[in-house]
Nucleic acid binder design. Structure first.
Length: 418
DNA sequence: TCTGGGGTCCTAGGACCC
DNA sequence: TCTGGGGTCCTAGGACCC
């Protein structure tokens, strides 16, 4: 059997750990740039705050004190997420960290599943303060459905076990089609057009029809819902095949200078992520865009892919090529809202193909990057930069409601007055 | 006035190979 | 006028996830 452990309103729960006065109060966490709502407490949901609404739509609620809003604080959430996984590792040797707030655990051999799931939940709460829901079933897709069912219908225990055909059917009948893992807006609409409204309806459908309409992805969903596992618990984190760093700007950029600083920083971040997973990339892709939402401004979007002579992860090389790309696609006279760098064609750093006529790999360059990473790691993040990255940060994003990095920075510890 | 960021997998179709 | 068969690789686009 497989358990899905899902943290409840994870970002909000993280913020509440250090602001206990917000317990039972409506709280939301905003996206980067304080753009839109990406996490809501139950109370905020009850207030009618929808997922993904723009920050300005809840501005009145926030200003009148009815709703508390935070900028997203990924350093804090990432650290707490690691602590949750640490705790979970006591309960299974086989864990797949599926996302920042969800993990699958292989519970093969556990006899009293309900009791075990309750123990998991209690322990995570005790060790990290984060509330969770646990769903247990024979497949990942059913475990997802079970945890969602626990969250909706059994909030007190926070646990639901799908261990009999009767329980499975009952829960499938109670699950709307769009809540199946793998059914997004398009598929939900399509399936409803064929009179399928619940997960149960879907399981009654002909397999060949599903295959034709939804490819092998849909077929796997069907099998999984019928209790036949198609998706395994993946224990190792495969290295990323694409790495992207992009941001919207706090204010529109109209000059090449700040835009190039932003792109340099995005490129440096991509290079760092590459080195962290011990990879090198063959392509550097740069894009810039104006604000597609503003009706009256001139619109411009462009992107370019630069092929590196040799796959690399050196910040200087990635920045240089990203800037080369930017210089080719930049046009004067636009208000740029967002830019980004994507590195792709990623291969392990010890397996890359040397260029035919290039000199031997530059070991000195690798050393320089190792030193750079070591200093930036020990000295608080990103103190040491390359000149192109600049220090103006006029492009920086908006986060006016940022909480402290309580768990990872000594100078931002929680202070208690007694 | 305001609208996130970072990923994955699958398929179809074109280019190219023998 | 006739014009094979069987592959691989790559990319763009569409669907999805959190």
């Amino acid at each position: 059997m497989i358990a899905l452990v899902d943290c409840n309103n994870f970002y909000v729960s993280c913020e509440r750990l250090f602001a206990p006065e917000l317990k039972n109060k409506p709280v939301v966490v905003l996206s980067n740039n304080d753009g839109c709502v990406i996490a809501r407490s139950d109370e905020a949901k009850e207030l009618g705050v929808k997922m993904g609404v723009s920050a300005f739509e809840v501005k009145d609620l926030v200003q009148s004190g009815k709703l508390q809003a935070f900028s997203s604080n990924y350093v804090l959430y990432g650290d707490l997420s690691n602590r949750v996984v640490q705790t979970l590792s006591q309960f299974s040797n086989e864990i797949e960290v599926y996302s920042i707030d969800e993990s699958f655990l292989n519970l093969q051999g556990v006899s009293d599943l309900e009791n075990y799931a309750i123990q998991i939940r209690t322990k995570v709460r005790q060790c990290t303060g984060i509330p969770t829901c646990v769903g247990v079933a024979s497949t990942k897709t059913l475990a997802k459905i079970a945890s969602r069912y626990a969250k909706k219908n059994h909030k007190e225990t926070g646990v639901w076990i799908l261990d009999t055909p009767e329980k499975i059917e009952q829960v499938l009948r109670a699950t709307p089609i769009e809540d199946i893992w793998g059914v997004g807006r398009r598929y939900a609409k399509m399936l409803e057009a064929y009179n399928m409204y619940t997960a149960f309806d879907f399981t009654q459908t002909n397999e060949h029809w599903v295959r034709a309409k939804m490819s092998v992805v849909g077929q796997r969903m069907l099998y999984e819902l019928r209790g036949i596992p198609c998706l395994s618990v993946d224990l190792v984190n495969e290295p990323k095949k694409n790495i992207c760093t992009s941001r919207s700007f706090g204010t529109m950029l109209t000059q090449y200078g700040p835009l190039s600083e932003a792109v340099s920083n995005f490129a440096a971040a991509c290079a760092f992520k590459l080195r962290k997973q011990k990879s090198v990339a063959n392509y550097v892709h740069v894009f810039v865009t104006t604000n597609p939402f503003s009706k009256h401004e001139k619109q411009y979007f462009n992107s370019i892919t630069i092929t590196l002579p040799v796959a690399d992860s050196d910040s200087r090389v990635i920045i240089k090529n990203a800037l080369l790309g930017l210089s080719k696609i930049y046009r004067d006279g636009f208000k740029y809202k967002k830019a980004g760098v994507i590195v792709s064609g990623i291969v392990p750093e010890d397996e890359y193909q040397l260029a035919l006529f290039s000199p031997n790999p530059n070991n000195n360059a690798r050393k320089v990057m190792e030193v750079l990473d070591a200093i930036n790691h020990s000295n608080g993040r990103n103190k040491l930069k390359l000149a192109a990255q600049g220090f103006d940060r006029t492009w920086k994003l908006k986060n006016e409601r940022l909480s402290q990095r309580y768990t990872t920075r000594f100078d931002e510890l929680l202070v208690i007055n007694i």
